[in-house]
Every structure is written in structure tokens, then in C-alpha cells.
């Protein structure tokens, strides 16, 4: 493709300025600030700071609470990704096979993606509330069995379900597009070769979905690291006893509740590096390797 070249002009600069300003104010400036704070000791009430080198990182990486946060983040990332991709794939296969009512839920399945994370958390707050809603009936039979403010694993399950619910839509759209791009004659050829629908799915559709699958794997894991704050904040507040203290939530809690700006900044930098690494893997390896011509 031919590239268009433009000479510098004031109109072009003026048109670019708002976007550049937004990116600068909300990304580069805070990132630079975080980078600076990560290497200094910032006073909680303002009034000067001290250069401490890698001390903040050393402290973060030797903090057992940080490692438990890493552990729960990894559990959350894997569980939401598996759940979301599994659900999305199942729904996409139903829609692709045009089972009854597919037109209605093809649209319905996409909607959750438009819901903001805190709203998702609030909605599930009602769903998982031990005193009202579905689980109150279980608690009526077995008193105290369900309470996400006391049982850590129930709290993790709750944020996983809420997070996955939000992710399903995105993966669904991609899976459906990929399934519908498989030529019909391939399915027909397999039918002529004697393969039944389930066999065709295993031998034909799933292998041909591999590129999409890897793409969604990385996207979902990345999203679960960065986009989970709203859900955790509204649903569990990181508790009980730090059981749902995901990396991104811990940054907020340490920084704005514990006033440990420097520690939070160091954690931000680590999380940013992790996401950059995942994105790099995405573009460098997966996009190139797994595709068929």
C-alpha cells in the first residue's frame, strides 16, 4: 500500500492537538510521575521527597502481601479467561449452528461489553448478596453457608464470575466471526467424509479457531489484569482479608488508602511491564505464527 505523506501544517497540528493533549495528560504525564515516584520516597502529605533507587522495588518484591496479590491475580486471570473463552466459544458455536433463537441472543450476548466494570460489580453485588437474591435462599436452608465477606474462595469465585461475564461478549464476537469465516464447503466436505457434527467441531472448527483462540487468550489475560478494578472495588473491596486483593486493586489501596505513593508507583511500573510483555508476545509471536493460508 502506498503511504501518504503530508507536509507539516498548522491545521494538522491543531487537529492532532486535542488527542495528543489527552494522551499526554492521562498517560505520559502520570506514567512519568509514577516512574519518578517509584525511585523516590514520597511524603504522604507532600513536602519533598528523597531519591532511594531500587529500594521501593526491593520492598514490594519482599512483601508477602504483594506475592499473595500476585497469586490471586494469576488465579483470577486464568479463571476468568478460561471461563469467558469457554462460555464465548459455546455460545458462538450455538449461534453459528443457528440453533433456535440465535438472532435474539446474538445481540443480547454482545451487550455486557458495553457495561462499565463498576456497574458490573454493582449488579453482581445484588446477585451474590448473602441476605437477598438467589443466595439468600441457599442461606435460608444452610444458614451462613454463602457469605463473600467472610469466605475468601467465595469472594474470588464472585469476582471471577463477574469478570468473566463482562469478558464473554468480546470473545464471543471474535469467535463468531472466525466460525463464520470457515468456508461452508469445508464443513460439507467433512460431512461427505462421514464426520458427524461433534466430530466436525473437534477435527475442523476448533483447529481452525486456534489463531482466534490465542489472540483472545492474550487479550483476556491482559484485560483481567487491568480492567478488574471496578469489579473488585464494588463487589468485595479487596477482602475478605486481602483474598481478592488483585494487583491493580492493591496499587489503589496502597496508594490512596495507605498513602504509600512510592510503593504503589513501584507496583504500577511492574504491572505496566507485565502488560507490555504480554502485548509484545501477542504481536511478536502469536499474530505471526498461528495462522493458516
Amino acid at each position: 500500500m502506498r503511504r501518504a505523506h503530508f507536509k507539516f501544517s498548522w491545521i494538522a497540528a491543531a487537529l492532532l492537538a486535542p488527542q495528543l493533549l489527552i494522551v499526554f495528560v492521562f498517560f505520559y504525564w502520570p506514567s512519568a510521575q509514577a516512574l519518578y515516584w517509584a525511585f523516590t520516597l514520597e511524603q504522604p502529605w507532600g513536602g519533598g521527597n528523597t531519591w532511594v533507587g531500587f529500594d521501593n522495588f526491593r520492598k514490594v518484591l519482599s512483601d508477602p502481601y504483594y506475592w499473595s496479590s500476585v497469586r490471586v491475580s494469576v488465579i483470577y486471570a486464568l479463571a476468568t479467561t478460561v471461563l469467558a473463552i469457554g462460555m464465548a466459544l459455546t455460545l458462538a458455536i450455538f449461534v453459528d449452528r443457528q440453533l433456535a433463537g440465535y438472532r435474539a441472543y446474538r445481540v443480547a450476548v454482545i451487550w455486557p461489553y458495553a457495561v462499565a466494570a463498576p456497574a458490573v460489580g454493582l449488579a453482581f453485588q445484588f446477585v451474590f448478596n448473602p441476605g437477598a437474591g438467589i443466595f439468600s435462599y441457599i442461606n435460608a436452608v444452610a444458614p451462613g453457608w454463602w457469605d463473600l465477606s467472610q469466605n475468601p474462595w467465595q469472594a474470588i469465585a464472585a469476582i471471577v464470575v463477574a469478570g468473566a461475564w463482562k469478558q464473554v461478549a468480546y470473545s464471543f464476537v471474535f469467535f463468531l466471526a472466525a466460525l463464520q469465516s470457515i468456508p461452508r464447503s469445508l464443513t460439507e466436505a467433512a460431512a461427505m467424509d462421514g464426520a458427524r457434527p461433534l466430530r466436525r467441531m473437534i477435527d475442523l472448527q476448533l483447529p481452525l479457531l486456534t489463531p482466534t483462540f490465542f489472540f483472545l487468550l492474550v487479550i483476556n489475560i491482559t484485560d483481567s489484569f487491568t480492567d478488574s478494578f471496578g469489579i473488585v472495588d464494588t463487589l468485595t473491596g479487596g477482602g475478605p482479608f486481602r483474598a481478592t486483593d488483585l494487583l491493580v486493586y492493591k496499587i489503589y489501596a496502597d496508594g490512596f488508602r495507605g498513602f504509600d505513593y512510592s510503593g504503589a508507583a513501584a507496583q504500577s511500573i511492574i504491572l505496566m511491564l507485565l502488560v507490555m510483555a504480554l502485548t509484545f508476545v501477542q504481536f511478536r509471536y502469536i499474530e505471526r505464527r498461528v495462522h493458516y493460508t
Binding site: P183, S185, L186, A190, L204, L208
Partner: peptide, 10 residues
């Protein structure tokens, strides 16, 4: 035998 061959690409 199909017009576009319909070979399994993978």
C-alpha cells in the same frame, strides 16, 4: 469433489 477443493487447511 468440490469446486474450490474444500481441503482442510490445517
Amino acid at each position: 469433489v468440490f469446486q474450490n477443493y474444500a481441503l482442510y487447511p490445517h
